[in-house]
Every structure is written in C-alpha cells, then in structure tokens.
C-alpha cells in the first residue's frame, strides 16, 4: 500500500520534471527577450504554435524527414524573429509597458488567425520519430517523447549558458541586459543584441512548440501552454535565466502533484489552474519572483 502511493508520487514527479523542462525552455524565451529589451513577449505561445505547424507541414506535405524538417523550421523561425524585431518591435522602443505588452498580444492574435486560416481548427497527430513504447526507469514509466524533450531542453540550456559565458556576443547580451546605455557606450551594437535575442527566443520557442506538439496533439490550443510557461518565468523572476529553468521544472512538478492529489476534491481540471494559483501565492511573498532582482528606483 505504502509503496503504491510512493510509486504514484514518483510517477507524478518524474512526468512533472519532463513536462516542466519544456516549460523551462519556453520560459527561457520569455526571459531572454525581457532581459535584453524589457519586453514581455506574450506572443510566444503563438510563435511556438507557428513553428510546430510549419514543421508539421514540412513533414507531412513535403515528405521531408524529421530531422531536416526540424532544422529548416529553426532557420525559418530565426528569420521570423529578426523580421519581427525589425518591423514591429523596433518602432516601439521607449514606449510605455502597456503599449509593448499589447503589441505582442496583437502580434499573437494575428499569428493565431493566420494559423487558423491556413491549417483550420483540426487536431493533428504529429508524426514524430519516437517509439510509442514507454521507457521503464525501475517501475516508473517515461515515454520516449518526454525523455527526448527533457534531453533537448537540457542541451539547449547548456548551450545557452555556455553562449552567455564564453562568446563575445553572449557577454555583449549580458552587458546590454545589465545596462543598455553603458553597453552602447562600450561599443556593443545594442541593435544587434536585440535582434539576436529575438532570433534566439523564436528559435527556442519553435523547439518547444515542436516537442509540445509531439507530446500533446497539434491544434489551435497549443498557445495556451505558452501562457502556462509564463508563471514559470515570472516565478523564477523575469530577469533570471537560472530562475526560468528552475521555475519551469517547479511548475511542471507542482501542477502534476496538484492534478494527481487534488483533482478528485475539486472535480477535475486543477492541473490547468494550479500554475496560476502557485504564481499568485509566490508573488504575495516575493513580488519580484524567486530569483528576480528587486529594482531600486530613484525619482
């Protein structure tokens, strides 16, 4: 009896960690853009969805194998990211927060309608290369998709940590995030930094989108999961990369636990709101997130 319960708990935690790692990936997209440009990109859910649908079409309609299709999608989203920054976001530099938040919401709305126009409101099963057989870790079952999603998320994060630590561009991005005026005076091309952050964020969200489409179905509700990664980013603190990663995994595990243990008390669906309730509770205690820096303001 005891081992049964422990097993249930372990299963919830493990699948929470795997889903949570995808949230971390999306949260990374939020944090990157926020750090470099002070923009909260609420269109990230739709960018994710666009990447997933694009890759899906390459695989099913153009019969391109999975991995090349994946890479083409990344190139496509890189171009899209630069384009978005140049055309829509750059005119908005210096505008108030609300205007910038709303313009990303507007972008998201437009993308959602474009996706709806092209692909329609159907559910698609993403043709992934992963086998359906679950992998057994001891007695805990983990599906291949989840495992690969987690490996991918960890790889991407290690790559980015190295990027920020060792490359000139990465150091420039950190400098810009810290103080864009000083970075500008030190000869860092702030425009380039902003463009690169948008590029990275759209690429990362495409990766997340493709894996989410593999885990769930591919349909027009996928963007909602992007919104669920928002608590992860905010919880960790909007300007902390490590916070985004930890926040993502934490949200994944906590919402799984809430779903597993509280669903029968509230009649189901607790998993869908758990992330937001946790977010509210954490913001009551720490208004700048777990690892965010408290801004010191002067008049």
């Amino acid at each position: 009896m005891f081992s049964d319960q422990l097993h249930f708990l372990a299963q919830l935690v493990v699948s929470g960690i795997t889903v949570g790692s995808v949230y971390s990936l999306i949260a990374l997209g939020f944090v990157l853009i926020y750090k470099a440009t002070d923009v909260l990109n609420l269109a990230i859910g739709e960018l994710m969805m666009l990447g997933a649908y694009f890759c899906f079409t390459l695989i099913t309609t153009y019969k391109i194998p999975y991995i090349p299709a994946f890479l083409i999608t990344l190139v496509f989203s890189a171009i899209l990211g630069i384009l978005l920054e140049r055309v829509v976001l750059r005119p908005m530099i210096g505008e108030p927060i609300l205007a910038i938040v709303m313009i990303t919401i507007g972008l998201g709305t437009v993308f959602r309608s474009i996706i709806g126009m092209i692909w329609g409101p159907l559910n698609y099963v993403f043709p992934g290369p992963f086998s359906e057989e679950p992998l057994m870790l001891g007695t805990i079952a983990v599906s291949h998709v989840h495992l690969w999603a987690m490996i991918m998320a960890i790889t991407v994060m290690i790559v980015f940590l190295a990027f920020f630590k060792f490359t000139t561009m990465g150091i420039g991005m950190r400098a810009t995030a810290d103080d864009s005026d000083v970075a500008f005076l030190m000869g860092i091309s702030v425009k380039k930094v902003v463009a690169v952050s948008w590029l990275i964020a759209t690429v990362v969200s495409s990766i997340a989108g493709i894996f989410l489409a593999n885990i769930n179905l591919l349909n027009l509700n996928l963007y909602f999961i992007g919104l669920k990664a928002l608590p992860a980013a905010v919880m960790g603190g909007l300007d902390s990369i490590a916070g985004a990663m930890i926040g993502g995994v934490l949200i994944g595990v906590l919402e799984n636990l809430a779903g597993g243990y509280l669903d029968h008390l509230f009649g189901g669906g607790v998993k869908e709101v758990a992330a937001f309730i946790i977010l509210l509770l954490i913001m009551m205690i720490r208004p700048y997130g777990l690892f965010g820096t408290k801004e010191i303001e002067r008049v």
Binding site: I105, G106, L107, G108, T109, R112, S113, I114, G116
Partner: peptide, 19 residues
C-alpha cells in the same frame, strides 16, 4: 474563414494603432 478574418482585423487594429 470569417472568424479568423475577424480575429486578424482585431490584432492588426491593435498593432497599427500602437505604431
């Protein structure tokens, strides 16, 4: 695609007004 056209017009209106 009436619904999508409607949604797109709404999104475009927000973006164009803001810019």
């Amino acid at each position: 695609r009436f619904f999508e056209v409607k949604v797109m017009a709404f999104g475009l209106a927000i973006i164009l007004f803001l810019i």
